Simulated scan of single mutants.
Amino acid sequence: MKLIQFLIASILPFSIFAMPNPAPAASPTVDETVVAVEAVEAVGYSEKRDEPSKLFARDRVCRINGSGRVNCRSCPSTSCSAPYYVVGGSSYNFDCAAAGECVTIGGVTNCNWDRTVAEGCYVSAYYTDSGCTVANLGRC
């Protein structure tokens, strides 16, 4: 009987680690743009070139500026849905640049949007590094 009491008394404090984390109070934001809670992270950089869709791909790998989440939209406009997001500091494959809604962030205006290869969603070129230019990617 004392053994059972000892086991319960010694194991009970560890049960607090099994409790789930509380849900975040609000959606994460980047430059005042809210990332949708139901958004899914876009597929990152991949070297896998033996897939049929990748054999002749001429995509470019670019890093996302900043450290937070950035919306990846279904079209090159902030009015389009954002089913995906990309993470600042991570690298992603982009295949082309599209002219779209001009976005001004921190006094810098950019009207280009870069399209990811895997999801086909658009990230404002403000957030992609200098390797993802219209000259490097070409127009969509």
Rank of each mutant, 00 (worst) to 15 (best):
L7G: 10
S46P: 12
G120S: 02
S130I: 06
C75E: 08
G131N: 05
S130Y: 07
A98D: 02
F14R: 09
R69H: 14
A23D: 08
L7D: 13
N110L: 07
V108G: 04
A98P: 04
R139S: 12
C62M: 03
C140R: 03
E32R: 08
S81M: 02
A82H: 00
G44N: 07
G44F: 02
F17I: 11
V40F: 04
D59H: 12
L55Y: 13
S90R: 15
C121P: 01
K2L: 13
Y84G: 07
I64T: 03
S10H: 04
F6S: 07
S77E: 09
I8F: 11
S91L: 12
C132H: 02
Y127K: 07
P13E: 04
I4G: 08
W113Y: 07
G66K: 01
L3S: 14
C121A: 08
A36F: 01
Y122A: 00
N65P: 08
R69W: 11
S91C: 12
S74K: 07
I64W: 03
F17N: 00
A42L: 11
S15V: 10
W113N: 02
E51N: 11
E41W: 02
I64P: 00
R139G: 11
V40Y: 00
I64D: 05
I4N: 11
I64Y: 00
R69G: 05
G68I: 08
V70Y: 02
N136R: 13
F6A: 13
T104Q: 04
A26D: 09
R63H: 08
G66R: 01
S46T: 15
A25C: 06
N112W: 06
Y45E: 10
A25H: 06
S46N: 08
S91W: 15
V103Y: 01
C72K: 01
V134E: 05
G107D: 12
A18Q: 06
P83C: 01
S10L: 10
C121D: 15
L7Q: 12
C80R: 00
R73Y: 12
S27C: 14
V87Q: 13
A18T: 12
G120A: 03
G100C: 02
G107I: 05
G131C: 00
D50V: 10
P52F: 07
F56G: 04
M19N: 12
G66D: 07
A98Q: 03
R115I: 07
C80W: 02
K54N: 13
S10M: 14
N136Q: 13
R60Q: 11
Y85G: 06
G138N: 01
N112T: 06
S79M: 09
R73S: 07
E47P: 10
L137N: 04
S90A: 10
N71T: 15
T104W: 06
T116D: 03
A99Q: 15
F14I: 14
N93V: 03
V70R: 00
N71S: 15
N110G: 08
E41R: 09
E51S: 04
V61D: 09
T33H: 10
L7M: 14
T128H: 00
S74Y: 06
D114N: 15
D114H: 08
T128E: 05
P28F: 14
V70L: 03
M19G: 02
